[in-house]
Simulated assay, not measured.
Amino acid sequence: MNIKDRVDRIPGGMMIVPLFIGALCRTLAPGAPTYFSGFTQGLMTGIIPILAVWFFCIGASVHLSTTTTVLRKSGSLLLTKLLTAWVIVAIASRYIPPDGVQTGFFAGMSLLALVCAVDMTNGGLYASLMQSFGSSEESGAFVLLSIESGPLMSMLILGATGVAHFKVAVFVGAILPFVAGFALGNLDPKLRDFFSPGCKILIPFFAFALGNTIDLHTLMSPLAALGIVFALFVIVATGVPLIIADILVGGGTGTAGIAASSTAGAAVANPLAIAAVAPEFMPVAKDATTLVAICVIMTSIIVPIITGLWHKRFGQGSNAAKGVQHSLGLLP
């Protein structure tokens, strides 16, 4: 039936499709987990333990033994993305209250939603775009971008901006699976090869469990319009710094920067993951999850389009980088 091929045609399909199926279950049969109980209930509601195993596998797959070019490109994109996220959250913390915006068009927006949407790149989408519009080195920049996966960086940004204060034990507990996987994967390449497939295998399972926390009726609310505006903001606010970093540090034409301006599908899990270890975020976690989910879908659609347009305009020819720099005012 070629089910996987059809799912793969959707950007981030292995995350989005199970997420949507889970959301349908929650919307149409909210009592299903309790009714079935047992293993079925665990599959529908066990997002935290599934994520814990996924974070471990992500850690095991990360290794830095790659070429200098790849490290320069991936490092510049990673640091720019994280620094941009930190600046955005630091500024937004002056205007968005701890319990989120309660009234008006921006009702439902919170610092939790903001940090989870801006600090993680859709690595799979980035790699596929670079295979079409970039070089093998640019495609390989996915190596370091995987470090963004999970709530670790979001928690660091929230802590660094003073938005949240995590106890040492809580913070260590959140990152320990990733660190353990990273240590084992780098101590023994065979263990890396053994655990790394779990990065992809577990995605539809935690996506389905995550979907079971989303009521699709929410999408009929103002959150839908807000989510679309939010996605456009994420692309512009992170895309411009990433373009500049790709040109000035990575030696590219800005195409890789545009391709890295999306929101990772896995970011949808971060609001609840962070709220699980920092209960003060629980009141805003539901709306944050919905907003980040909308942002994932919209950026997955928009980013490939503008990446192709950017590549067509600036990504070809020996003078492409200079043309971009002139357009951005980086050269006289």
Rank of each mutant, 00 (worst) to 15 (best):
L184H: 11
L242H: 11
P151D: 02
N212H: 12
F195D: 07
D215I: 02
S196K: 13
L176C: 03
L223W: 11
H217G: 15
F166K: 06
A160H: 04
G257S: 04
P197I: 02
G211R: 07
T253N: 11
A260L: 10
T213R: 13
V172Q: 09
G252T: 03
V240D: 05
I243V: 15
M155D: 00
I203L: 14
A169K: 15
T213I: 00
F178T: 09
I203S: 02
A237H: 04
D246E: 07
L219F: 15
A164N: 09
A231N: 04
T253A: 07
D215K: 11
A209Y: 05
S149L: 14
A245H: 01
D188Q: 14
F195K: 10
D188I: 11
C199R: 12
F166S: 09
V163S: 08
L152F: 10
K190V: 07
V163I: 06
V170N: 14
A259S: 14
F171S: 02
L219N: 12
E148C: 12
D188N: 15
A225V: 13
S261I: 02
G173R: 08
L219Y: 15
G181V: 10
F206E: 05
P222Y: 09
A169P: 00
S262V: 10
P151I: 09
L216S: 05
F206C: 06
S261Q: 05
A183M: 14
I214K: 09
F233D: 00
G185F: 00
F230L: 05
F182M: 14
D193Y: 09
